[in-house]
Design a binder for these strands. Structure first.
Lengths: 246, 246
DNA sequence: TCAAAAGTGTTTGTACTACACCCATGG
DNA sequence: CCATGGGTGTAGTACAAACACTTTTGA
C-alpha cells in the first residue's frame, strides 16, 4: 500500500486564466468597520459610543461603525466613519483585528474589522450628537449591541499592551501636563496604582519630558510643574526589542 | 449664528425594524483566509508556501489560502484550509489582521484575514504536495503573488514579538532538545546573536526546562544535554504585565 | 591532535521596589 | 491651620550584559 504521490509538474497545466471569474465564484459577505475610540477625562478611561439604530438593540450602545464601501480601503473606511460620526479628522487609527462570527449581527452574516485609537477628549469636542454620540466610562459599560462588548474588551486589552510599548498616552493629555495627570492616565488605562516617586523617576530617566518652567494654575493645592512631551526624542529612541522576556 | 443641536430623543422614532434588509443593502465582498505557517529546520526559519494557481502569477508562491464559506467562522476557515492544503489538524492558529487593499487581488476586490502559526517541521511531515506545497527559507523569499510578501513581513514581525512573550518556540523543537537547538531557534527567529552563557542562565532561571538526563547522539562534537519543556509550569506562570516599558 | 561545540562564574551596571517626610497652595 | 497633592532620596534586590577558559567528543 503506497501513498499516491502527486508530482508538482502535473499541475502546471491547471493554471487559472480568469482571475475575475474565480473571485466571482467566492461567497460574498457584507463588511463593516467599527472604531473603538478611547479617551481620557477626569482620571477615567472613556470610550465613544452611540445608540444603536436597530430596533432589536433598542437602548443599547454600539461602537462607531458602518459598512465599507466598494473599493474602499479598510483604513480609509475607518477614517471616513470616524469623521462622519464625530467630525474628527486628526486621529490615528490602528487596526486591531477582524471579528467574523456568523451570528454576530442579527441581520445576517457581517464581518467587521475593529479599529482603535486613544485621544484627548478635551481636544476633540463632539460637534455631532447623532445617535446620542457620547463618552462612556469604560469601567461601567452595560450590555452593548452585537458583539461589541467582546470587541471593546479585546481592544481594551490591546490598548493596555500597546501603551506600555509606545507613549500613546501623550495623545490623551493637554500639550502641557503635570506628572500627576500623566500618572492618572497610566493608572486609569492599566487599572493599577503606581508609586508616585517611582513613576516620576521612570519618566525622568527616560528623558522624554520637557520641563517648560510653568506651573499649574487654579488648583486647590500646591501647583505642580508642567511638561511637554518630547516627540522628537521619542522618535529617535523607539524601543529595540532584543531580550527574551516571557 | 448658533449651532444646530439635534436632540437625541428625536432619533428614537428612526429605529430600523428590519436588520436583514439593512445588511442586504451593504456592499458585499469576497473573503479569504491566508495562513502563514512558520517552521524551523536546520537552524533556519521557514514558511509553508504553494505555487499560485493563477496564470498571472505563474511561478510565484502564495500563502495557504482559500475563500471563507457561507456562515463559516473565520477561525474555522483557517483550520479547514490548513487541513485541506497540508493535512495538518493539530496546529494552533492565531489571527493576525485583515488585509483589504482594493487592488490586492487581480480578480477584483478580496479581503483576506491572515492567520499565523509556528510549528515543528519534523513533527508535521507534508503528505500533500498539491501546488508544490513546500517549506521555504524566510530569509530568501522571492517575489510572491498578491500582497503576500507584505502579509509575510507583517506576520513575521508579529511572530518575533510574540515569541518574546510566549514560549512558542518549543513547538518548533523536538520533544527532547539541546540548549544549542533552543538558542539557534531564538537567534533564527529574532535575527540576532545571543550570548551562550547568558542565554543558558536565562532559561535556567526560568525553570521551564526539565533535564531528562540524556545526551545528544551522533553529533560530530561533544554532545549536549537534552531537555524537555515544562508545559505545566509555563501555564501557571504566564506573564503578568505591569510595568511601563517603552 | 584538531575542530567544534558544551559547559561554566564573576563582575558591573542598570532598573525596579518599597518606603516617609516636608513643602506650597487655596480655602 | 487644615487639606490636598507636590516634590524628593535611599537601600535592597533582581536582572542583563560583557567576557574566556576548560572539557568532551568524533574525525
Amino acid at each position: 500500500m503506497t501513498k499516491k504521490y502527486v508530482h508538482p509538474v502535473l499541475h502546471e497545466a491547471h493554471l487559472i486564466k480568469d482571475a475575475v471569474e474565480l473571485v466571482q465564484s467566492y461567497p460574498k459577505v457584507p463588511l463593516t468597520v467599527d472604531c473603538a475610540i478611547f479617551g481620557f477625562e477626569e482620571s477615567k478611561l472613556k470610550i465613544l459610543l452611540i445608540k444603536s439604530d436597530l430596533e432589536v438593540f433598542e437602548g443599547r450602545y454600539t461602537l462607531l461603525g458602518d459598512m465599507v464601501r466598494d473599493n474602499e480601503e479598510l483604513d480609509a473606511a475607518a477614517y471616513r466613519i470616524l469623521k462622519e460620526r464625530t467630525g474628527m479628522n486628526d486621529v490615528f487609527l490602528d487596526q486591531v483585528r477582524a471579528f467574523g462570527h456568523p451570528n454576530r449581527h442579527p441581520g445576517g452574516r457581517v464581518i467587521t474589522v475593529a479599529y482603535c485609537s486613544l485621544l484627548n477628549i478635551n481636544h476633540h469636542e463632539l460637534k455631532i450628537h447623532d445617535n446620542e454620540l457620547n463618552w462612556h466610562t469604560v469601567a461601567n459599560l452595560n450590555e452593548m449591541a452585537f458583539d461589541h462588548m467582546e470587541i471593546v474588551d479585546y481592544c481594551y486589552a490591546w490598548l493596555q499592551k500597546r501603551i506600555q510599548e509606545h507613549p500613546l498616552g501623550f495623545n490623551l493629555l493637554p500639550e502641557k501636563f503635570s506628572l500627576r495627570e500623566l500618572q492618572n492616565l497610566y493608572e486609569a488605562i492599566l487599572g493599577v496604582t503606581l508609586d508616585r516617586r517611582n513613576f516620576r523617576k521612570k519618566f525622568a530617566s527616560m528623558d522624554l519630558l520637557i520641563d517648560i518652567d510653568e506651573m499649574e494654575q487654579d488648583v486647590p493645592h500646591r501647583p505642580g510643574k508642567l511638561y511637554k512631551f518630547n516627540f522628537e526624542k521619542y522618535e529617535k529612541n523607539k524601543r529595540k526589542w532584543v531580550g527574551i522576556d516571557f
